[in-house]
């Protein structure tokens, strides 16, 4: 293959090459061991099958990954996404209420309120990080724990079950044969992509994440960038909360979005965005999220108990982070140099 300028070479240079390879490996594994993974059926005009399931189940994670990508690109992190999901879910369900067939509040108001609360939660993180200059990890850890307390307060400590049909469309409905959450993800992705690639915000994020002092000297308002990004990350978690609560037809302040932080970070890191900030790839993170989700689905379909999945994920996160660490990278560079000398 001497085709250095062809699509293959170009693809290899982009950040999404490795996530694509990994995703293909998972698919290949399924092709061999559980071919029913690829079976697609049309029932009542809707598409069904494991692949659709991955898209559907993976939607909250993809949403979180989009927000997390932007945060990590500014050299930060957001550990509170799971708690924000719980807040969003709690808000929307409390406003809709547990009455069969009707909503206590007009649904669109309930949804806007949930998204508004999530945006506020994210902005709070952003304020702590950008103005109070608290390390992102600690600032968001506070909301990670206190946020679940807030969600409990909203639901008054109850698991609220809702019976309002129209709301179930958000998580369980179908549009053009595809699950509706996929369209939410597509919409948020398109918005994020447009904002970061068709305005200057993406450039500023990458600049601030790479060298905050140089960015400041060049006239970039680093504080406002961070504030907006954390708020956006909260909003993404808010959408995820809507999907989750609609799917479960309830809000559980303790368990909604539990431990999605690590999956989100994992998706972003697999997608090629460095934990140290700078360059980011939204598409890579989406692929990373799909990868995480298909691994989970695959493991489930093999009959492995879900508890093990978490352990496997923890090991995978650590491995991926170590592979991307400078120490390993430098070591690999040296190895390849040594091998490169004779040839």
């Amino acid at each position: 293959m001497n085709d250095n300028t062809g699509w293959w070479a170009r693809l290899r240079r982009t950040g999404i090459f490795w996530p694509l390879v990994a995703l293909s490996l998972v698919f290949l594994f399924n092709l061999i061991f559980s071919p029913q993974f690829f079976r697609l059926e049309i029932k009542d005009g809707h598409l069904f099958g494991s692949l659709v399931d991955v898209l559907n189940r993976g939607s909250p994670l993809m949403l979180v990954a989009i927000g997390m990508t932007a945060v990590i690109a500014t050299a930060g992190v957001d550990l509170s996404v799971g708690a924000v999901i719980a807040i969003s879910a709690a808000t929307v369900t409390v406003l809709i209420g547990s009455v069969t067939g009707e909503s206590q509040t007009p649904m669109w108001i309930a949804i806007l309120a949930a998204l508004g609360a999530s945006l506020l939660a994210g902005a709070w993180n952003g304020l702590l990080v950008s103005r109070a200059r608290i390390q992102p990890m600690v600032a968001t850890l506070v909301l990670m724990v206190a946020g679940r307390g807030i969600a409990q307060l909203i639901t008054n400590g109850q698991i609220i079950t809702i019976y309002y049909e129209p709301f179930f469309f958000i998580g369980g409905g179908y549009l053009l044969g595809l699950p509706f959450p996929v369209f939410i993800v597509a919409g948020v992705f398109a918005f994020a992509w447009f904002m970061t690639r068709r305005t200057a915000i993406g450039l500023f994020i990458e600049s601030v994440g790479t060298n905050a002092s140089s960015s400041f000297h060049s006239g970039i308002n680093e504080k406002n960038i961070k504030l907006v990004i954390y708020a956006f990350c909260g909003l993404c978690a808010g959408f995820a909360g809507l999907i989750i609560s609609s799917n479960l037809k309830s809000a559980d302040a303790n368990n909604a979005g539990l431990q999605i932080e690590l999956d989100g970070i994992l998706a972003v890191v697999i997608g090629g965005t460095l934990m140290s900030g700078g360059r980011f790839s939204l598409a890579g993170s989406i692929l990373g999220a799909l990868l995480v989700q298909s691994v989970s689905t695959t493991i489930y379909s093999l009959g492995v108990p879900p508890e093990v999945v978490q352990v496997v994920k923890a090991v995978v996160v650590l491995t991926v982070v170590l592979l991307y660490s400078d120490v390993v990278k430098n070591g690999l560079d040296k190895l390849s140099q040594r091998q490169g000398v004779p040839s």
């Binding site: 990890m137 932080e261 970070i265 999945v309 978490q310 994920k313 923890a314 120490v327």
Partner: peptide, 17 residues
């Protein structure tokens, strides 16, 4: 040379799992 929070976060999920 990995940030402590990411290593211990993975440790947290590992132990819970």
């Amino acid at each position: 040379k990995v940030q402590p929070f990411i290593v211990t976060l993975a440790g947290m999920f590992f132990a819970r799992g």
